[in-house]
Design a protein around this nucleic acid. Sequence first.
DNA 1: GTTTCATGTAACTTTATATGTTACATATTT
DNA 2: AAATATGTAACATATAAAGTTACATGAAAC
Lengths: 152, 152
Amino acid sequence: MKRDSRLSGVLHILLHMAQQPGPFTSETLAKAMDTNPVVIRRVMAGLRELGYVRSEKGHGGGWTLACDLSKVTLRDVYVALGSPALLAMGNRTEAPGCLVEQAVNAALDQAFHDAEALLLSRLGEVTLAMLSDDFRKRLGSRKHQGMRAHRA
Amino acid sequence: MKRDSRLSGVLHILLHMAQQPGPFTSETLAKAMDTNPVVIRRVMAGLRELGYVRSEKGHGGGWTLACDLSKVTLRDVYVALGSPALLAMGNRTEAPGCLVEQAVNAALDQAFHDAEALLLSRLGEVTLAMLSDDFRKRLGSRKHQGMRAHRA
DNA sequence: GTTTCATGTAACTTTATATGTTACATATTT
DNA sequence: AAATATGTAACATATAAAGTTACATGAAAC
């Protein structure tokens, strides 16, 4: 399976937006993310629906943060993306008439469920504000070395 | 991403094999699993290398269990498959020069790592023997209703 | 009001990976 | 030698993320 990097990507976008007022066009963000503007609009659509960002058309338009960063967790962002699958593995079939399959599924489902619950819980513990603070801390350290925030 | 069901599948195979002496041909197993013999050989290859099963060619050949089921955990089987990715999500890029990306990756990696560790730990707690016992328990219940073990 | 700029979205292409299939070499038993 | 089974390469298919193209819609600038 191809690893889904939308959560990572959209967090990257949000943190960039948190560093200056905006608005930011999809094209600007796409360049910073080294991708396509349409991809940006796609991943941002869910966040707009939940009110975490706003978008405006026309001159001077673009994307703007519309939430309290200390109130939005990584889990909220994940949900805004449509809660995509967390695990790369799954059962061969659901609704198994085979008792062997039932035994296997029961054991795996238990483990899978626990891991998903922990991951969601961890994501729910981290707010965008915490990430932003971490970024600024890193920025401070690097500034002492006379380097730039953005190199990629 | 497409969910990886090889672990589920190979466990299914092993449990079927545990119910009678064998050996089992790839074709027999493939029919029970509703798939192709080559797929069976592919997922069994790793298990053979670790000595959990044996395979023999020619007349009367096929696959045989070669381990103590109470000594092999689901985690062992997972490793035998080549330790495929557990999580469907990952970071956009590794080796990020961008400090924003570093902050995002650090937070996600922590959550991802914890979830993976828990999943591996859970898989390590369950042996094939436990699964087999569970299967036989289910078989017992169903027998009381006059039904067959295999319906799919 | 027309031009320009920006998002919104559908449709298509590309890429990666699991899964399925075909073909054939190799080994073992009869 | 024939039959049976694994071993494996090569190719085909399915699915989902990611990238691209095209065009409609709406808002600001002139």
